[in-house]
Write a protein that binds this DNA or RNA. Structure first.
Lengths: 183, 183
DNA sequence: TCCCTTAACGCAATTTCTTAGCGTTAGGCG
DNA sequence: CGCCTAACGCTAAGAAATTGCGTTAAGGGA
């Protein structure tokens, strides 16, 4: 579910916003597994059936909220050089994703294939990397390949966040970027 | 849930096996989202309350089944050389994980933190890589670092399976291994 | 501007799933 | 062989999910 709204103004948009806000609020207060649709509905001031009809079920709703939250609001910071741009980006990404809530958002996104949530989030990353690549080109730097940056930088970081097999520290992030430039 | 059984013989073990078998069967027949606890219970010939008590809820059960299925039954094939060992391993891993069911198992494992399912699966990979490393040492090859193999080989492959942003073809797998040895 | 169409919502009844109490069965140990 | 109790089955109560139907209010056209 969470399809694009046919009607995007007024009541429908208000409810969507309110439900999203409520989910984010609950996500901070309690464990993801403790959240239920009726609970969200009551706090948001709507009836459960509204949520079920619009989003399908709880997983789809959570995935939809996650995608909305992961959707970038601005271009990645311009630090003046390609390498520091990449470093800043991955550090911020990890900062957001390795928290409890961030980790849960990731698995919510990966656990559903409604509206291709995973693909969408992936696109956000691609777009950011592409922006950084073009910036590098304009500076006259020897630019990098976006899909290689995914493989060398993003993939390891995401892997360790998801599987929890090692701390994803800032130092580790920097070492990953360093390794990328030694290819 | 899915804790280690206190009693590991007889009825308890029979039920666990039957429930696992049933889940795997259903996973082949229908979409993961269509499966319910009562459905599993009926087919397995047990009451729903047994499943709820033992596994907690559907996600925990699915994660438990996934971990059991991912648990290796044998050491990775010995192909005679380190590089071909790694290639064979990643090819088989991808073969299993990039199917619809495999993809679902992965997200089930990542979507729960009961019994550290994700960590367990990760351990299986580590163990296999470690086996291959030791084999390489015995052959007198210059062995690789296991955690680097994770970052260079497994992470990209898993990333693309999960996010679905590109086909993980055998050619791609081989190119990932090739890249690893050019470090 | 006002009306018409219909997407989206609220309400309520129904169905299905989940939880919990309690008695029963059957491992595992002395 | 018999005791202890983990684990199961049954059942009832509670919560969540689904569905039909009437109502509200976007959005488009006269």
């Amino acid at each position: 579910m969470a399809r694009e709204m046919v009607r995007q103004g007024g009541r429908s948009a208000r409810i969507q916003a309110e439900v999203h806000r409520t989910v984010n609020e609950l996500l901070k207060e309690m464990d993801r597994g403790a959240i239920t649709v009726p609970m969200v509905a009551e706090r948001a001031g709507v009836t459960p059936s509204t949520i079920y009809r619009r989003w399908g079920d709880l997983s789809d709703l959570l995935a939809d909220v996650a995608v909305a939250r992961l959707r970038p609001v601005a271009d990645p910071e311009d630090t003046g050089a390609m390498r520091s741009d990449l470093e800043a980006f991955v550090l911020q990404y990890v900062e957001e994703m390795s928290s409890r809530v961030g980790r849960q958002m990731l698995s919510d996104v990966l656990g559903t294939w409604e509206g291709d949530a995973a693909g969408q989030c992936c696109q956000f990353t691609y777009q950011h990397l592409e922006t950084m690549r073009e910036r590098a080109l304009q500076r006259g730097e020897q630019a990098f390949d976006v899909s290689e940056a995914i493989d060398f930088i993003m993939a390891p970081v995401v892997y360790h966040i998801l599987f929890g097999d090692r701390e994803v520290t800032p130092d580790y992030c920097r070492s990953v970027v360093r390794r990328f430039f030694r290819t």
